[in-house]
Design a protein around this nucleic acid. Sequence first.
DNA 1: TTGTTCGCTGACTAATTAGTTAGTTAGTCT
DNA 2: AGACTAACTAACTAATTAGTCAGCGAACAA
Lengths: 204, 204
Amino acid sequence: MTTDDRKEQTRRRIIMAACEAIAEYGFEGVRMRIVAERAEVSTALLHYHFDTREKLFLEAMKFSFENTGAEEYEAKPPRKNPNTWILARVIDACLPRTAELRRDFVLWQELWLRATRDSDSRLLAIDLYQQMHEWVAGVIDKGIGASEFTACDVGKVADRLLVLTDGYGIRLLLEDPRLSLADARAAVWAAISPDLGITRKFPE
Amino acid sequence: MTTDDRKEQTRRRIIMAACEAIAEYGFEGVRMRIVAERAEVSTALLHYHFDTREKLFLEAMKFSFENTGAEEYEAKPPRKNPNTWILARVIDACLPRTAELRRDFVLWQELWLRATRDSDSRLLAIDLYQQMHEWVAGVIDKGIGASEFTACDVGKVADRLLVLTDGYGIRLLLEDPRLSLADARAAVWAAISPDLGITRKFPE
DNA sequence: TTGTTCGCTGACTAATTAGTTAGTTAGTCT
DNA sequence: AGACTAACTAACTAATTAGTCAGCGAACAA
C-alpha cells in the first residue's frame, strides 16, 4: 500500500467519523476532539487535512449524501406485481428504517436546519433535494411510469412521496409509541399508490 | 407595577430572547452572552433566573410552543363555503408563511433534532406533536367533520396534514426557487381536500 | 545507503465559554 | 423612618475550544 492510499484512507476515516459525530451531537455540538478520537488520529491531523472545522464538516455532509446506497434498487423486481414491489422499495428507501438510514436521516435534518443559516449549506441542501427527487422520479418513471394504469405527473408524485417520507421520518425519529414504522409505511402507501394506479394494499 | 410583575416581565424577556436566538443560531450554537444582550440584561441574571443554560433553553422551547397563536382561528368562517375556508386556514397555520411562523418552525425542527439525543426534549416533542394533532383534528372535526360529505377518519386526515405541512415546511425554509408557498399550499390542499369531501380548488 | 519528502503528532496558545461571587440598589414591609 | 428582601450586575474563574507549530519517523527517490 502506497502512502497516497494510506492518506486517502485516513482522510476517509476522518470524514466518516465526522458524519457519525454530526448525527450524534449535531453540527454545532461536535468537538474536533470527538472526531479525532473516533478516527483514531490527533486533532492536529484534522486541521492538516481539512484546514478548519467548518470545511471538514461540509466535506462530511457532501460525502455522506454522495455515498448513501441505492444499490439494492438495482435488483430486478419480481414478475408478479412489479409495480407494487417497486413502490414499496422506494418508500422504504426514504424512511429511516435501519440504524444506518436513521443516521443519514438525522444528518439530513442537520443540513436542512443549517441551510436556514448558512448559504453554502443551503445550496448543498437544494442540490441534494433535487438529486433525491430525480432518483425517486427516475425509479418510479422507469419502473411504474410505463404502466397502462398510470396517467399522472411523476414529478408531483415523487414530490409528494419525499414530503411524506420526510414528515413521517421525523416523527419516526421521535420513537413515539403512537407511530410505528408499519403505520408510516402504510400511510405513505395510501397517499401515493392511488396516483400510480396501484390498487393493491401494502405488501406483507 | 410591583417587583413581582417586573421580575416576570424580565423573565419573559429573557425567554423570548432565547427563542429568537435558538431559531437563529441553533440550540448548540446559542451563547448566553447573545441571549443576555438581546434581553438587555447581564449574563449573571440568566443564571439567577434559570440556573443553567440547559434549563433556560428547555423553558424557552416550552414557552414558545405554548404561546404560538391560534387566536385567528377563533374567527368565524364565512357563510359561503365554510369548509373550504376552514381547511385553507388550518393548512396556512401549519406552514411557515410569515417571519414569525418561520421562526417557530425552525425552533420546532431544532426540538425534533434535539429529541433524537436528549430524552427530556424527546418527551416534550412527543407531547407537543400530540397537542398540535389534537388542535388540527379538533378544528377539522368541529368545523368540517359534521359536514354531510365527510365520512373519514379525522385523526388520520389531521395526521396527514401535519406530515405534509412539516415536509413542505422544511422545503420552504430552503427557499428553493423550485418551490413556492403557493405550490406547497396547493399540494397539501390536493392531498387533503378529497378526504374531507371538499371538491373545490384552493381558494384565491 | 543516504537524503528528502510528507503524513502525522505532542505540546502549545489565544480566545471563548458557562457558571460563581461579592456587592449594589431599588422596592417592600413594619 | 429604618430594616429587610431580592432583582440585578461587574468582575471574576476554571474549563474547554479551534487552531498552530516544531519536529519525528516511515516511506520513497537517487
